[in-house]
């Protein structure tokens, strides 16, 4: 069942188009940076973007910073929002469940395919950015790859920290996916589920910046999304990363629990 769902998701052209578009944006940014040599000023733009002009090896991290706030959540939301509601819209959900397939099993299969999509998307962006960064942006003997604390980073240390970043960003995206996935079990409209997921994301992003929401800030889903920068400090600052991991975990568990409670007990009419 899981393999079937994964095959179905990755057999769709639009899945690959969304991954291609996610990779395209950092590539376009890298082309502009390499042609103009104009990076963002300190304090502006996504993390590491000012540093990649002299060091392309950091571009995977910068690329994740570019797609993380908007484009990656949109792609994830659309895929997760479509998972159950899409079947309902096309009228295949009832037939799926007529077969000897448990609802919980179907949910697990859908969830597995979404998780794989998130990982593939994040890895694809990182690998594309690495290739583009090393070929178009700065490299050479005078370039020092350092942590943001200024201490040297060996290629293996940089590789490990980049992989940890990829996994952390992937885990963060599962929170958005869970919201859209839950909404997908509530409605027959994939668009409504995807937009619902994005609304939760936008709402959380607004509240995170609001001083008046200080008491709830640490529990918002996007609060620790950008904590992946802490992988590049020396020593690594684990506090926000751990909290981000836990907060996303709670959202994932609760929302998937709600999706399960709703989907396994609802009337499927379409």
């Amino acid at each position: 069942m899981i393999v079937v769902e994964i095959r179905k998701l990755f057999g769709r052209r639009r899945t690959w188009v969304s991954i291609f578009l996610l990779c395209l944006l950092p590539t376009v940014v890298a082309v502009f940076l390499s042609l103009t040599d104009i990076g963002p000023r300190p304090g502006e733009g996504p993390a590491f973007l000012s540093a990649v002009l002299s060091n392309g090896a950091l571009y995977p991290a910068a690329a994740l910073g570019i797609v993380l706030p908007i484009f990656l959540p949109i792609a994830v939301s659309i895929v997760a929002g479509e998972s159950i509601a899409g079947e309902a819209t096309t009228g295949t959900l009832r037939y799926l469940l007529v077969r000897p397939v448990g609802r919980t099993r179907l949910l697990v299969a859908k969830l597995s395919s979404i998780t794989l999509f998130v990982l593939v998307a994040v890895f694809a962006v990182s690998i594309t950015a690495l290739v583009v960064g090393l070929n178009l942006l700065g490299s050479g003997p005078v370039v020092a790859t350092t942590t943001v604390s200024g201490t040297p980073l060996s290629p293996s240390q940089l590789g490990i920290r980049t992989v940890l970043t990829i996994l952390y960003v992937g885990w963060s995206m599962l929170g958005v996916a869970s919201v859209a996935f839950f909404l997908s079990t509530l409605t027959d409209s994939p668009l409504a589920a995807a937009l619902g997921g994005l609304s939760a994301l936008v709402g959380s992003t607004v509240l995170v910046t609001l001083d008046a929401a200080d008491n709830v800030r640490d529990y918002l889903p996007t609060r620790y999304w950008l904590a992946w920068v802490d992988f590049f400090r020396d020593p690594i600052l684990w506090r926000d990363i751990e909290r981000g991991f836990l907060v996303q975990g709670v959202y994932v568990v609760v929302l998937l629990g709600m999706a399960w409670a709703n989907f396994t007990t609802r009337d499927v009419t379409s």
């Binding site: 568990v253 609760v254 629990g257 396994t264 007990t265 009337d267």
Partner: peptide, 21 residues
């Protein structure tokens, strides 16, 4: 409804999880 049983305890379990979190 064709699916009636289990609704209450499933949502109760989710509610307890949310309260604990």
């Amino acid at each position: 409804s064709v699916v009636g049983r289990g609704t209450r305890w499933r949502w109760a379990a989710v509610g307890i999880g949310v309260a604990a979190a």
